Computed example of a mutant assay.
Amino acid sequence: MFSNKKRAKTLHLRGQDLSKGEPIAPPLVTSSMFHLPGDPAGHAGYGRVDNPTWEVLEHLLSHLEDAPCVAFPSGMAAISAALFATVKAGDRVLIPSDGYYVTRVLAQEFLSGLGVEIIEKRTLDYDLDDMSSYQVVFIETPSNPGLDLCDLAGVTARVRSAGGVSIVDNTTMTPLGQRPLDLGADIVVASDTKAPGGHSDLLMGHVATRDETLFGRVVSWRKMSGAIPGPQAAWLLHRGLETLDVRFDRMCQSALEIATAFEGHKNLISIRYPGLPDDPGHLIASQQMSTFGFLITMTLKNESAAERFISGCKFLRPATSFGGVHSSAERRARWGDDVPAGYVRLSVGCEPVSALLDDILNSLSSI
């Protein structure tokens, strides 16, 4: 898990290597060209390949992941890089049928057209599969939006023993809440648009791996595809990462308190939160996660009830995405997820939990 010493070092990673008079905050470098007389070897050459602001960000991301990292302009850019760096024609790729839907669309609409066979299974079924027939296995645990879990160490061990590559989307938990590389994953991908950025003002993602060959492939993909992050977003993400620890702790603690208060509520058909002792994923979550996250899912009786609940909360923003300092909620069926019409994904933010809980319970009780 992520030790307190590493948490403290996160705030001083850049500062410990500064020379006298250098700025503590990293400079924002927007240049596409660099002064490059003579032999260019070993020096920044062109903005599609080199950027000092990215380098500072990737240094911090690598500290958080304890692995080399490559920054991308969105979470889907990171997922695309990981898949295109590992998949070739003739491969069989396993994708979660209940995970983030855009990953499935990417696989079905683009990878399948390149001679890749796409297999979809529920996250819960990953624990039952021997993984021997896949060259690449994409894992998302907890799944988004259902919050189902699989045994990361067990699944990645079976993938590796069969000679495959495992890719884990760790967006919902961040490196502070779950450590897929320590549990055997070959590659981690994440949308840093969510909790790492935290303020709903940037799009970013990253890929992390301890495998030198895979790392080189991901770097090459970014260079050749042009899927590069903007320096402004990279600078904002670096700033966001410095407060991730305190925000993530507040969000997760609040989520546990809110989920506990939801149990047995007359207007809820069901609730999912891995921190609840009777949640189906609680045992696995307790073993492989250092906290239970900030996402709660709940099912109300129908679409109208769900929309009234969301609109009735002063301290909930009706918006897609999650992980911001502002609590937010949305009815996921509107995007085509295979969930009931009254299914709501709630992202708990950084508001004082007493005020947030009162607001949510008042709205829930009034529908």
Rank of each mutant, 00 (worst) to 15 (best):
L83P: 01
L83E: 01
F84G: 01
T86Y: 05
T86W: 03
T86C: 14
V87L: 13
V87Y: 05
V87T: 14
A89P: 01
A89H: 06
A89C: 10
R92G: 04
R92P: 02
R92Q: 12
V93P: 09
L94P: 11
D98S: 11
G99P: 09
Y100F: 15
Y101V: 15
T103S: 09
R104Y: 06
L106D: 00
L106P: 01
Q108S: 11
E109S: 14
L111E: 02
L111R: 02
L111V: 10
G113I: 03
G113D: 11
L114Y: 09
G115W: 06
E117V: 09
E117I: 13
I118T: 06
I119Q: 11
I119A: 15
I119E: 14
I119V: 15
K121Q: 14
T123D: 00
T123G: 02
L124C: 07
L124N: 03
L124P: 02
D125P: 04
D125V: 12
D125Q: 15
Y126K: 06
Y126C: 03
D127C: 12
D130V: 11
D130G: 07
D130A: 08
D130K: 08
S132R: 11
S132Q: 06
Y134W: 14
Y134T: 12
Q135T: 14
Q135G: 10
V136C: 10
V136W: 07
V137W: 10
F138C: 07
F138S: 03
I139G: 12
I139K: 13
I139L: 15
E140W: 06
E140H: 08
T141A: 13
T141E: 04
N144L: 13
N144S: 13
N144A: 08
P145V: 14
P145R: 15
G146Y: 02
L147W: 03
L147F: 02
L147Q: 01
D148H: 12
D148K: 14
L149S: 02
C150T: 06
D151R: 10
L152T: 15
A153L: 00
A153C: 02
A153V: 00
A153K: 10
G154M: 07
V155Q: 09
T156C: 15
T156H: 03
A157C: 01
R158F: 05
V159A: 12
V159T: 12
V159H: 06
R160T: 04
R160L: 01
R160S: 04
A162L: 09
A162I: 07
G163I: 03
G163F: 00
G163W: 00
G164F: 08
G164E: 05
V165T: 15
S166K: 14
V168I: 15
D169L: 08
D169P: 09
D169I: 08
N170V: 13
N170S: 13
N170D: 08
T171C: 08
T174S: 09
T174A: 02
P175M: 01
L176N: 04
G177D: 06
G177Y: 05
Q178T: 11
Q178G: 08
R179N: 04
R179M: 05
R179Y: 02
D182T: 02
L183S: 04
L183K: 06
G184P: 01
G184H: 03
A185I: 13
A185M: 08
D186Q: 11
D186L: 09
V188L: 07
V188E: 09
V188M: 07
V188C: 15
V189D: 05
A190M: 05
S191Y: 03
S191Q: 02
T193I: 13
T193D: 07
K194A: 12
P196C: 01
P196N: 01
